[in-house]
């Protein structure tokens, strides 16, 4: 019993150290990517296309709908307490600081995290990774780094679009149901939006992007021989990405409220 527990512990510590080593290897290769990454630049472009551009429709629709719901509910309820202007800080807190980065992360986990883990897992099973090594291409530099950079940049950009659509686009939808004066709305949104909100949002999306990409790549490479391992590792990648994103979010919020 004690021996089992000890072995379990040692294995988990080993896995954690391996994961950290993997992360630092990706970071190291990322630094070199800008200098000699001409072969991987196309992969990066395609990664941003798949992860960022193709998710834009989903993200913008969700952002507009969420923003409109918050405005409509808030405009209906808050003035009853004499706090009608509270709608703007609420909108910014939800869209910019909290749900924006988190919802974008969830969508990216579902779309690209699974795709990356599956693709890299297939590459391993089909010996494509060995083919890259035999050709002289480092799979970390060529496969992992463009995906890492691509997902991180895409999540950051999608989060910006989410904010844009959530704060501005939703206003136009609201006009059909509960008209608000445009000048007043935008003036108050801009007045209540602070640089620390934007910085917090950007940091969150960057951290979530790093987590999702590294975890997905890691579990993709964990596939060894059989194609049946691919879905197993993909599920693990999704689960671990969710958990780590939530923990990171809590940690960033804690730091944010400590600082401000």
């Amino acid at each position: 019993m004690l021996g089992k527990l000890g072995r379990w512990m040692i294995n988990h510590i080993k896995a954690l150290l391996y994961g950290l080593g993997f992360f630092f290897q990706i970071m190291k290769a990322t630094i070199g990517f800008a200098r000699k990454g001409q072969v991987g630049k196309r992969v990066l472009t395609m990664q941003i296309l798949f992860t960022g551009v193709q998710a834009l429709t989903n993200i913008s629709l969700i952002a507009i709908a969420l923003g409109a719901v918050i405005i409509i509910q808030g405009v209906g309820i808050l003035p009853q307490f004499g706090q009608g202007d509270l709608i703007y800080p609420i909108l910014i807190t939800i869209i910019t600081r909290e749900l924006g980065p988190m919802l974008c992360a969830f969508i990216i986990i579902a779309r690209s995290g699974t795709a990356i883990a599956t693709e890299i897992g297939s590459n391993v099973v089909n010996h494509e990774i060995e083919a890259y090594i035999a050709t002289g291409i480092d799979p970390i530099s060529y496969l992992a780094v463009p995906r890492f950079i691509g997902v991180t940049i895409s999540l950051l950009l999608l989060n910006l679009y989410f904010n844009f659509f959530g704060l501005i686009g939703s206003y136009f939808i609201t006009q059909f149901i509960h008209p608000i004066q445009a000048a007043e709305y935008f003036r108050k949104i801009l007045f209540n939006l602070h640089p620390e909100d934007i910085v917090s949002s950007i940091i969150k999306s960057l951290v979530f992007g790093i987590i999702i990409s590294v975890v997905s790549i890691y579990y993709g490479f964990k596939v060894e021989q059989s194609s049946t391992e691919i879905p197993q590792m993909t599920i693990k990648a999704v689960g671990m990405s969710f958990v780590l994103c939530m923990l990171a979010d809590a940690f960033i919020v804690l730091i944010y409220y400590t600082l401000y």
Partner: peptide, 12 residues
């Protein structure tokens, strides 16, 4: 892809 991604980044 290059043009679309470029536009995607620039607009953001």
């Amino acid at each position: 892809a290059d043009q679309i991604v470029g536009l995607f980044i620039i607009l953001a």
